[in-house]
Amino acid sequence: MKALTNRSKVAVDKELTLMERLYFPAVLKGMMITLRHVFKKSATVKYPEVEKEFAPVYRGHHVLKRDEQGRENCTACGLCAVACPAEAITMTAAERKKGEEKLYREEKYAKVYEINMLRCIFCGLCEEACPKEAIFLTDEIVNASYDRKDFVYGKDKLVEKMDNRIDITKRQKKY
């Protein structure tokens, strides 16, 4: 069979030379390599103390945006759910009642909106499908948990808080 790379060596069963039999030079050679790496720049960061900077388009967990008046943008049109390749999104729509105009922007809103973060592959297709600029991915990591049901994020976790708004302007594509 033809070798895939030219780095392969044919194994030969010949007698070792004296230098090879001493074994010590080979150990020294190995130690030299190890020592050299001590002075090289480390590839990792010391995580809790030092945090690595995220790329501006990093895809962490989702946020459901509100508009500048604090009304929810999402109108439960279902395009994110139909675009989702992992089928992680489910929703139930409801009609806006009189007096709720300050809460929801359109006459229909999502009563229940759930994303299963264990199914989600963070591809960002929901964000792309959204016609109302309601759903965006953020640079926040999904927290670890011992319980599966903690990974089904409802509206309590997804909708942004008015006193703690999430900036997604750097994620937005410029056409």
Partner: peptide, 9 residues
């Protein structure tokens, strides 16, 4: 059927 579900679901 108003707002019950999208047709494709």
């Amino acid at each position: 059927f108003r707002f019950k579900s999208r047709v494709w679901f």
